[in-house]
Design a protein around this nucleic acid. Structure first.
Lengths: 69, 69
DNA sequence: ATAAAATGTAAAATATAAATTACATTATGA
DNA sequence: TCATAATGTAATTTATATTTTACATTTTAT
């Protein structure tokens, strides 16, 4: 699994830290860090919660690059 | 969690059974059934695999209705 | 009607997401 | 510099996704 740079950049665009996102969605900072670094496979509900905080959709953040548009 | 009728109807459109989808993505029929019935919270990788089999995107199948378009 | 396929569930076991704690490194600002 | 925030990562524990087995009900075709 590669890094999730779309998550990282969407977060940066809002000037939020990993901890900010973690607090907003109710998980730990390590979970957000692991997702950004592609270390595992989050649940869909967590993905949806992260997208809502970022003002993005699932396709924006979690759909494969080669499949966007 | 409500039922996932978008998954159910996309599957029906391809005339595939729950077991067909399960076999195609490498999980059990019960897992697909539970997802359709909203009984739990699958991982994003499983969601992506299901979408690919259906020829759909994450937004098509797993993003909330009120947030589509 | 009947058989077979598809579906809905449920209990117990297994795999893994996520929490917790902890420590090291890398930015960033005073 | 120096302090502090942010990040990367690892080990252990806990919660839960998923499997396996199993059985009942519902659809569908004959």
């Amino acid at each position: 699994m590669g890094k999730n740079l779309k998550l990282k950049s969407a977060r940066a665009a809002l000037d939020m830290s990993q901890k900010d996102i973690a607090d907003a969605v109710g998980v730990t900072r390590q979970t957000i860090n692991a997702i950004e670094n592609g270390d595992y496979n989050p649940t869909i509900n967590l993905c949806i919660a992260i997208c809502k905080v970022l003002g993005k959709t699932l396709n924006d953040i979690f759909w494969e690059d080669d499949m966007n548009e």
